[in-house]
């Protein structure tokens, strides 16, 4: 049967991996290619690079990181952050990425997702959604620009629409939970998983292994994305998978 995926996410800025708390307080966590190799050895199922460089001048840096990683690591690579044009996607795929994740550009022009899926296939078109809970309600709003700008768009409606436009996967980040280490927003994740028929990656908030278990079992995520618990060696991916395996979650050991 299909195994559940563990995806370490590497936030890359200026050619270095950094990790912040709710997008602030960035800390240096090392060289992306070395970290990618370490995760490869630990049994990661995929890798995601998120380019958080603000200016487009530094785009070459992430392309170089992807290229050097793809020469050494033979597993699926996703790149997100600043993907705005079909040409951006082509560059990433040519550098060795398998999927690109589109976030702000999809909100600005939803047809971009359709064009990407038609040109490169749904399998490499991930739509990243940054969601923030509407206070006091069971409803979430799509945010852009690294979670800073509200859009007024309902997350569930947006996910359904993006699937219809050809997205092959949803990367769903809770901006409320991101960096808190209190666990995924399970309610949000479950709501999106139930609304679409494509795989959903849960993201934002992992602090321990039970949170991964909850993401898979309670929220029904196909994959769990995590950053800091792996970067700071709190757990290895192998330990995470053994824990999940012992609790009867199907993982690749």
């Amino acid at each position: 049967m299909l195994t559940k995926r563990i995806i370490p996410c590497l936030d890359v800025k200026g050619g270095r991996v950094v990790k912040g708390v709710q997008f602030l307080e960035l800390r240096d966590a090392g060289d992306p290619v070395e970290i990618a190799e370490m995760y490869d050895h630990q049994g990661a199922d995929e890798l995601t690079f998120l380019d958080i460089t603000a200016s487009s001048d530094d785009r070459d840096t992430i392309v170089d990181v992807v290229r050097r990683t793809a020469e050494r690591v033979f597993m699926p690579l996703t790149v997100g952050g600043g993907i705005r044009t079909v040409e951006d996607i082509r560059r990433m795929l040519n550098a060795g990425a398998d999927k690109t994740s589109i976030n702000t550009a999809a909100v600005h022009r939803p047809d971009f997702v359709r064009e990407a899926a038609e040109r490169f296939g749904s399998q490499c078109t991930v739509v990243a959604i940054d969601a923030r809970r509407v206070p006091g309600e069971k409803r979430w709003e799509v945010h852009t620009h690294g979670g800073r700008k509200p859009t007024g768009i309902d997350v569930i409606e947006w996910a359904v629409r993006m699937e219809a436009y050809g997205s092959g996967e949803i990367l769903l980040t809770s901006m409320d939970c991101d960096g808190t280490k209190d666990g995924y927003d399970l309610e949000l994740t479950r709501a999106v998983v139930d609304a679409v028929s494509i795989p959903v990656i849960a993201s934002g908030g992992v602090g321990n292994l039970e949170h991964l278990y909850d993401g898979f079992t309670k929220a029904g995520a196909s994959a769990c994305l995590a950053a800091s618990i792996f970067h700071y060696r709190e757990y290895t991916i192998g330990e995470a998978k053994q824990y999940l395996h012992d609790k009867n979650v199907s993982v690749r050991l």
Partner: peptide, 20 residues
Amino acid sequence: PDGVREQDEILKVPHMGWNQ
């Protein structure tokens, strides 16, 4: 086919990830 169940879950399409 859409909507096929395996254990308690509805199987997603695309089939994406590691399988045996």
